[in-house]
Write a protein that binds this DNA or RNA. Structure first.
Length: 847
RNA sequence: GCGGACGUGGUGGAAUUGGCAGACACGCAGGACUUAGAAUCCUGUCUCGAAAGAGGUGAGAGUUCAACUCUCUCCGUCCGCACCA
């Protein structure tokens, strides 16, 4: 059989004509399977790295179809965003035009690879029929008090002239243009995702089928920690300074307080300070420091004494209040109690400015640790000490003092002396709560989601500003707030919408007077946080999504995409989903949108991520031109475990091509095949093929049911093909068996190489699509083997192998093993201490 | 620093979860068929050794009849977070 490009095209057209991937979400009666592949940002053409994503998704979709499920496989476009706007500025193309042109091109690519989608459900986030509902979601959040505006210091990229979210700042530079990021105070819209922090954390428990890596990244990002909030009263003022600490057991060692430059109390306490100007200059310096000026070196720690003191409420001693550059803004209260004896950072600071250091925690005694070792063996004291220091201790260069950051036993802590850290924490909180000087508290690293963008190419925020009524939400019936087509891109730092008079000018929905529209647009992560719901009813004009459909089709059974979305996209989607559940817009048993998540690895070339600038991009189109779609698909799946990064090797592609040719040659042989004389029962060659066939079905199915181990699945199919060749050359096969073997090969290959599988399916006289056939089943009885080979080991070392009949008694097998010449040579007539027989595997003789 | 993943031939990678390490491919070498090449087919290919044999899964120890797999220590690579009090 000849493979040619017409075959690809022919079957792609066939699937389209037959509507193979069309799903009637309402009407279908089969069990549902919602397979979702992360939709692409339509920038330029897709390369093989992107292809991996879609090929994996397609293989899953086709496999599940053959399993008899109703498989929903939609596709769409994450079409708003910065690159389109950058292109517009650079090349004077309208973002919309550029985006839609790219969509056409990518769609054509996906088609030519034979990726199957229900295109009737296509969703494009930059079109009004979609972003109308993104705005709707904004308004729901607004109504619930979860969308709010606040003035805040934000990351400002002077090159892109825009505000960046923290997560778009990589190592202190803009993720897109690598310009140094500055700080700027602006009025911004936020979503209050922090209200959901605890649920986002707790509900990770529902996600047993997500990779641990992703879950731990999310956990980390939420960053929940338990501790105590302590009030320190400022001497001479009625004011208090709140500090959060996770180590209240070290309170007796707190010898100073440190504030960040933004702390509100500074204005008050600095009033009558003599060196006020000096301090202000220092604060100003910190304010202008971009977040990238991360202090990696301890010597970078800087601070200034405010001249004021607070009281350590436990010791009653007065402790100085400092302003320091190492106190984070936006986490905790902006003030901390500093314990230089048990916190390395505080120690470095105290050392530099000569502040007192009081040890209050002793490392637990070695006896305690010794008890913890399993077998009670003594452990060398020196070793212990070394281990401990590597864990918790930071020896200072002058060796005067070791900062011990671990837990231990309290000293110099008044009535709490002798308690363990753990006990002390409880007792001290209790004491503080009674006295009203502190209380248990929880802190999160997670911050509210900044969604404002001073950009044109995004969904307009549906808010109007009226001189009389103030901030007014656009009524639902007025949605969408349409993005104007005519726009000018001026580098001013303002949203281009600011200059579109027709857009800005509007009437206040409340009082009808002249009003102005909000000119910021939304972060594209808002668009992508709910698209999977829109796929279920993409054409609905009056509602964002159909509740009934959601009950039926949510959660997504399998979500597939890159790890780069492990934190933001997935966190935001989870948040929005939970919110929609809360406002009763989504009804579901399972509180998470994506039941199972698969993150595929990157394809690298010459050891590096593919990029135009490196010139190492592998274009799929040339591979398709040379070998066809199936070869590319097969290689992408065969190159390695799909969740791991893999190096692209052109030689590997030709290997897959050869395999396909080898399969097709077998089909040719079958067409010409003349059956010889057949006996009643199968001969050895036939038995071998049948056995291999069934074991292959079993293993390939297991590989796909597991963690999508396409690479091993394919290698097993290769083995079946090899076995078929071998049996053909070694003896007679009746035609029926030859046929079964071939049919099995192509059924198993169908999810990976759909075009050729369809073609061969036709050779066997089936007019219907191979994907309407059932996935093959194996029969246990064909796996059974009378005779198997076992390895014979002496003292764990393989000495010989022997064939045994599985019915033989254990003793007989052992006797036979002992009698082997190679075994006798080693045992030299010594009687074995013990013989271990593992069924059908091993005989181990211990002497 | 914290969290996670990982370390196996010249290369990509297998190993029914503690049971014959290197499946399946790539590459390479030799051979067959060809005027020749391409394609295809066959054979070989962890290391040392002529062979018998010995060694071998980053290093070292331990548990076990048996360890790539489990435990501990160390070394190294990749990813995420990072002055989170």
């Amino acid at each position: 059989m000849d493979y040619n490009k017409q075959i690809d095209k022919k079957w792609q057209d066939f699937w389209k004509k037959e509507g193979l991937f069309k799903v009637d979400t309402k009407g279908c009666s089969k069990d549902k399977y919602y397979c979702l592949v992360m939709f692409p940002y339509p920038s330029s053409e897709l390369h093989v790295g992107h292809a991996r994503n879609y090929v994996i998704g397609d293989a899953v979709v086709r496999y599940k179809m053959m399993q008899g499920l109703e498989v929903l496989s939609p596709m769409g476009w994450d079409a708003f965003g910065l690159p389109a706007e950058n292109q517009a500025i650079k090349r004077k193309i309208h973002p919309r035009e550029w985006t839609l042109k790219n969509i056409d091109r990518i769609k054509q690519q996906l088609d030519s690879w034979g990726i199957g989608y229900d295109w009737d459900r296509e969703v494009t986030t930059c079109l009004p029929d979609y972003y109308k509902w993104t705005q709707w979601i904004f308004l729901q959040l607004y109504k619930a008090g979860l969308a709010y505006k606040k003035e805040a210091y934000v990351n400002w990229c002077s090159s892109c002239k825009t505000v960046l979210a923290n997560e778009q700042v990589i190592d202190g530079v803009c993720e897109r243009c690598s310009t140094q990021v500055d700080q700027k105070k602006l009025n911004q819209w936020f979503f209050k995702i922090t209200d959901y922090a605890d649920r986002l954390l707790k509900d990770l428990d529902f996600l047993s089928e997500w990779p641990d890596r992703v879950k731990s990244m999310q956990q980390n990002w939420i960053g929940k920690s338990w501790g105590v909030e302590i009030n320190f009263s400022v001497q001479g003022y009625g004011e208090k300074i709140e500090c959060f600490t996770t180590r209240v057991d070290t309170i007796f060692g707190a010898t100073f307080l440190a504030l960040n430059w933004e702390h509100p109390i500074l204005d008050k306490i600095l009033e009558d300070v003599s060196n006020k100007e000096e301090i202000k200059i220092f604060i100003e310096k910190l304010r202008n420091q971009p977040p990238c000026a991360r202090l990696l070196d301890s010597s970078d720690k800087e601070g200034i004494f405010t001249g004021k003191y607070a009281l350590n409420s436990m010791t009653g001693k007065k402790i100085p209040i400092w302003v320091a550059n190492y106190i984070l803004t936006g986490y905790g209260t902006g003030a901390i109690m500093c314990v230089p004896s048990h916190d390395l950072r505080d120690y470095e600071f105290a050392k530099k400015y000569d502040l007192p250091i009081i040890e209050v925690i002793k490392r637990p005694k070695t006896e305690d640790r010794r008890q913890r070792t399993e077998n009670g063996e003594e452990i060398d004291d020196e070793d212990q000490k070394r281990n401990q220091s590597s864990e918790f201790c930071h020896r200072t260069s002058d060796k005067e003092f070791e900062v011990y950051e671990g837990e231990g036993v309290l000293v110099n802590s008044g009535e709490f002396n002798g308690l363990s850290s753990e006990e002390a924490k409880n007792r001290i909180v209790e004491y503080m709560e009674n006295k009203g000087i502190g209380k248990k508290a929880v802190n999160y690293k997670l911050r509210d989601w900044l969604i404002s963008r001073q950009r044109y190419w995004g969904a307009p925020i549906p808010i109007v500003y009226c001189l009389t009524c103030g901030e007014v939400a656009v009524p639902l019936e007025d949605l969408p707030v349409t993005l104007p087509q005519e726009v000018e891109f001026l580098s001013t730092g303002q949203s281009p919408l600011t200059y579109v008079q027709d857009f800005i000018k509007t009437k206040c929905p409340k009082c009808g007077k002249e009003a102005k529209r909000e000119t910021d647009t939304m972060d594209t992560f808002v668009d992508s946080s709910w698209y999977y719901l829109r796929y279920l009813s993409p054409k609905e004009e009056n509602i964002p999504f159909d509740k009934e459909e959601i009950i039926k089709w949510q959660p997504v059974d399998q979500y597939i995409g890159g790890v780069e979305h492990a934190i933001l996209h997935l966190m935001y989607s989870r948040f929005i989903y939970k919110f929609l559940i809360d406002i009763d817009s989504v009804k579901t048993e399972f509180p998470e949108p994506f039941k199972r998540l698969f993150t595929q690895g990157m394809i690298v070339k010459d050891g590096a991520k593919m990029s135009k600038s490196k010139g190492n991009v592998v274009a799929p189109d040339y591979i398709i031109e040379k070998y066809g779609a199936d070869t590319m698909r097969l290689y992408i799946l065969f190159m390695g475990p799909p969740q791991k990064d893999a190096e692209w090797q052109d030689e590997g592609v030709s290997g897959c091509w050869r395999f396909i040719q080898r399969c097709l040659r077998l089909v040719d042989m079958f067409k010409e095949y003349k059956e010889g004389d057949t006996a009643d029962s199968f001969n050895e060659c036939e038995k071998a093929v049948v056995r291999k066939m069934h074991s292959t079905i079993r293993e390939v199915t297991a590989d796909l049911e597991g963690n999508f181990q396409f690479n091993t699945a394919i290698s097993r199919i290769m083995e079946l093909v090899n076995q078929t060749y071998k049996s053909l050359s070694e003896g007679e096969l009746r035609k029926e068996i030859f046929k079964q073997a071939l049919e099995t090969v192509f059924l198993l290959l169908a999810p990976f190489t759909p075009h050729i599988s369809e073609e061969v399916n036709k050779v066997f006289g089936n007019d219907k699509s191979i994907f309407s056939q059932a996935w093959p089943r194996f029969d246990e009885k064909h796996l059974h083997q009378e005779e198997v080979e076992v390895a014979v080991l002496v003292n764990g070392k393989v000495r010989d192998k022997m064939k045994i009949n599985v019915k033989w008694a254990k003793e007989d097998i052992e006797q036979k093993a002992l009698a082997l010449a190679k075994v006798l040579k080693v045992t030299a007539n010594r009687t074995p201490k013990k013989i271990i027989y593992i069924e059908k595997k091993i005989v181990n003789i211990v002497i």
